[in-house]
């Protein structure tokens, strides 16, 4: 899922000074799963904003709405009936949702309430770990299901580096597992360590964000 974290509240409050009617818009998909922008977080942020702004001397009405998904036009459209009565939107969706709302309602001030940080999995309650870097050149088939781009501090294609600690931890942070150690252990368990001896060529980064904004087309699905 896409992971996001709340922006620092003072930063958000500063942006909203002067607006009379604010809508906090949530998204019930990824950001709800990572406890940043679902209905629960929307209903938590709304009274906080009311209090923080009132404390600064600004009276503001804060309404709430949580969309099924903010990255789908059909769901974004449901905000249309609310827009005439609001001056600004705080979107707790990922950056995609924020941009969708801003694109659909270009005259409206739209502020991100979260920082979108990564593509991750919920490892255990309250802990999310990055698993994918959306690099556009997936190598998981060669690395026994571990992503070295997202999970190696150096994104090495041919690891491990010389800094792996004895316990299989990363030199950057002793709490991080060295993903190349994990790759090796899984390869060994499958009796396929020899596959790791092959030198992997430099990655095709042209398909990542370095090549400009990505654009995917499926002609068979287009209208």
């Amino acid at each position: 899922m896409i992971i996001a974290e709340w922006k620092p509240l003072p930063e958000l409050v500063d942006k909203l000074k002067g607006y009379k009617r604010v809508l906090v818009a949530g998204c019930a998909t990824c950001v709800a799963e990572c406890a940043a922008g679902g209905e629960r977080e929307v209903e938590t942020l709304a009274p906080l904003l009311r209090m923080a702004l009132k404390k600064e001397g600004y009276d503001v009405t804060v309404n709430t709405k949580t969309l099924e998904r903010q990255c789908e036009w059909e769901f974004v459209e449901s905000l249309a009936e609310l827009v005439p009565d609001i001056d600004a939107v705080v979107s707790l969706a990922c950056g995609i949702g924020v941009q969708a709302v801003a694109e659909r309602f270009p005259d409206l001030a739209v502020y991100p309430g979260v920082n979108t940080t990564s593509l991750a999995i919920r490892q255990e309650p309250g802990l999310w770990l990055a698993r994918c870097a959306a690099c556009g050149d997936c190598v998981l088939g060669e690395t026994f299901g571990f992503c070295p781009v997202a999970r190696c501090a150096k994104s090495l294609s041919n690891g491990p580096c010389g800094g792996t600690r004895k316990e299989g931890k990363c030199e950057v942070n002793e709490e991080l597992d060295c993903v190349w150690h994990q790759i090796y252990e899984r390869a060994k368990a499958r009796g396929k360590v020899d596959q790791l001896l092959k030198v992997r060529k430099p990655r095709n980064w042209s398909n990542s964000g370095h090549g400009g904004p990505k654009r995917m087309v499926r002609e068979d699905l287009r209208s």
Partner: peptide, 11 residues
């Protein structure tokens, strides 16, 4: 209790 309930009471 949820954070939202507690904050609404104070708000």
């Amino acid at each position: 209790i949820e954070s939202s309930y507690l904050l609404k009471i104070i708000a």
